[in-house]
Design a protein around this nucleic acid. Structure first.
Lengths: 154, 154
DNA sequence: ATAACTTACTTGTAAAGTACAAGTGATTTT
DNA sequence: AAAATCACTTGTACTTTACAAGTAAGTTAT
């Protein structure tokens, strides 16, 4: 890890926190332009590797991805493990702390689906999130633990 | 408005959207380091003026605040009106689109309260959000419409 | 009435962060 | 044994941010 990454790493532990406000805590943890997309990929689309994240349609730069993954791992939202068979690869997964962001993600999805006329959010999914929230959360959590992929990348 | 602001303004209308993913839509709307704090100030703390936002404890820079307010207004999350009596002032308020972010904010607060050992989130508030979500949402929306302040800045 | 103050910004500049292209070294595949 | 893949790192130009200072319109105090 280089100096810049270490700087971010250290900030990660919130030596430089702007306030103790819960909204601010969330912002300083994953409130940049990319982190939530990585979390999305892990939460809904079964992506697990560096290359998987790189290939998402939003096209994150490789250096940015590297620092965000350090950051998210540092904050305990993401875990990195050696791939079972391929020694070149690492496998990323959400920790419990990361999985617990699911309700917030669902609310964001509901909001975007309401206000973005060209949203890619599947109607049935949004309907489920609105009317069967708790059940949908359980279902997704179960799938995550079993490493089943419920949805295709948008 | 200067060239830079116009550039952001144009991006605001999502000519340059990275994808139609709902998470991405939210990120491109308010996914920077400051917007959610402005929305928080409007939602919970009864702040309404430029100076109010400037004086929040996170210390946003004045030029950043100006561009974020343009952006948020452009996206229809915030409305700007001349102050009733003081012609120097403007009064900012949340639109319905902005108010509809409340459920997402509540989930973020619940998450941060769980994982930040030094969170400033009031326990009773978090408890209410968990057990009486819908009622709390109604209560806050009513207060917003009546311009009552329910909470003190953290 | 006028000077001092407040308000909502704008401007300038240095520092930090981002995007893009091109490596690199350790595997794995062909 | 060569070519490809994987998870990064490095270099550089560009963009964004942070901080300090200034400005114009409107309000308050004397």
């Amino acid at each position: 890890m280089d100096k810049k990454s270490r700087a971010i790493y250290t900030m990660g532990k919130q030596q430089n926190r702007r306030s103790d406000c819960p909204i601010n805590f969330a912002l300083q943890t994953f409130g940049d332009t990319w982190s939530l997309l990585i979390i999305r990929d892990l939460m809904f689309f079964g992506k697990t590797s560096y290359g998987d994240f790189l290939s998402s349609e939003e096209h994150i730069s490789t250096n940015i991805l590297a620092t965000r993954l350090f950051h998210l791992e540092d904050f305990g939202i993401v875990e990195k493990m050696p791939h079972k068979t391929d020694k070149r690869k690492d496998t990323y997964s959400l920790t419990q702390k990361g999985i617990d962001l699911l309700p917030a993600l669902l609310e964001i999805i509901i909001w975007s689906a309401k206000y973005d006329p060209q949203t890619a959010a599947p109607k049935e999914f949004v309907a489920e999130a609105k009317t069967n929230r708790e059940q949908l959360i359980k279902q997704i959590k179960t799938a995550l633990k079993q490493k089943k992929v419920l949805y295709q990348p948008l």
